[in-house]
Design a binder for these strands. Sequence first.
DNA 1: CCCGTAAAAACAGTATACTGATTTTCTGAT
DNA 2: ATCAGAAAATCAGTATACTGTTTTTACGGG
Lengths: 235, 235
Amino acid sequence: MLKLSDNLVDAIYADLRQKLQRSAVSPSDRLVDTEIANAHGISRMPAREALLRLVSEGYLVGTTRGFAVRELSLEDISGLFEVRRQLEPRAAACAARDMTPEIEAEITAAMNRVERALGESDIPALLAANVDFRNAWLKAVSNPHMAATISRFIDYFQSVRLGTFADPGTAELYIDGLSRIHAAFLARDPLMVQDRMTLFMFAAEEAYLSVRRRQLQEAEAQRPARRRTQKRGTA
Amino acid sequence: MLKLSDNLVDAIYADLRQKLQRSAVSPSDRLVDTEIANAHGISRMPAREALLRLVSEGYLVGTTRGFAVRELSLEDISGLFEVRRQLEPRAAACAARDMTPEIEAEITAAMNRVERALGESDIPALLAANVDFRNAWLKAVSNPHMAATISRFIDYFQSVRLGTFADPGTAELYIDGLSRIHAAFLARDPLMVQDRMTLFMFAAEEAYLSVRRRQLQEAEAQRPARRRTQKRGTA
DNA sequence: CCCGTAAAAACAGTATACTGATTTTCTGAT
DNA sequence: ATCAGAAAATCAGTATACTGTTTTTACGGG
């Protein structure tokens, strides 16, 4: 596997984080330290520490039987978007002002991949390209604390994003917003980027809320008295 | 020691976090897992996991010789305040709109303690009351993600805050800004709270920058070729 | 007295082992 | 067939032990 850092915990963490970003782990899956350890040929502790870190960052929740991706309540979605609205439009505006030609090219390349994936209805590619687009413009954000915070808040939506892209209509609307932001980046107009990002935030919130609402309804319909045991919680 | 949670890691984490909030750990101190473990009569692992969590949250850095509180560069301070400026004024405005009489009383009580501590030049009490004031108004922020993010960003400044309060002039200015915010809370005027918090953010940034600049100068003057070995870093 | 080198110590990282709680599976009785 | 209860399995939490690296200290030569 990847061993960019000499540290096993970081390697496992990066691996898991990428899996989460690509929605390769569903909320019904259970991540167990021993399994991960065996899969990587290492002992439990590094795997466990990586999992614990993901819990403390809010991506996973501990259950009595392994770790699971955190499922967002409707209130979570609203709350997370309230924070995103405060940060992303402004940060994107800064990025539009400060980006280098190289970064602009990266953004455009990612946008092209997004559109191609949409055309081919290739959901995994769409997810990956979407991540690339975000990472590309975030590179132009000179404040690392800002960029890291934004990245983190976006990553909370992994579990819902899959649902958003699965619906063709929603996906198209989503990508349309993205493409308008991209155009504003190309125009190098910080204020236009800011405004379009703001609009995008509201549209995205609505999309996620409606997807999640449907998910919750379906879940309730299928199993009337379903409960998932949960333990540890990090405020 | 405190064992609010049945979990040793959480207990150690809470203990360390509180010590950090109260500036009870100086950047020259070294936190070592075995020491903490012995002090609490437990094994290394829970202590280590708590430390690792504080590292991943950005409060500590790992050195080759124990863990140390993270020292903020001037760029860090500017970057962190850029995020705070986006979040706190708006969140405080929401708090002013939504706060209950109980929370208002808590805020006022904390403000009184701040002023008493200032009068008596009781720095530890001032630090504690300052934390209380913040926690009090944050209770009125209904969005837990917003509140947690703000808390976290404020806590990054522990190491610098001590220096700010040590200087009487700076402390007085700082407390003055706080008291103006408090008055706006009492007036239950969200916009006034928002504006005063914005002003406060800029003043606080300037204060922290100047304190930190002085700290860095003094450090450089004392030991011309001082370097601190550093390892792990979490983006 | 200063510097280089070797020995010792300190510490993070990793591995393995043990424990207790919870959940699942198995068994047998009604 | 269904349910109760017991046995087994699973897994997080904790403890202890080992390893390799870096820093410090100690020693000896210049």
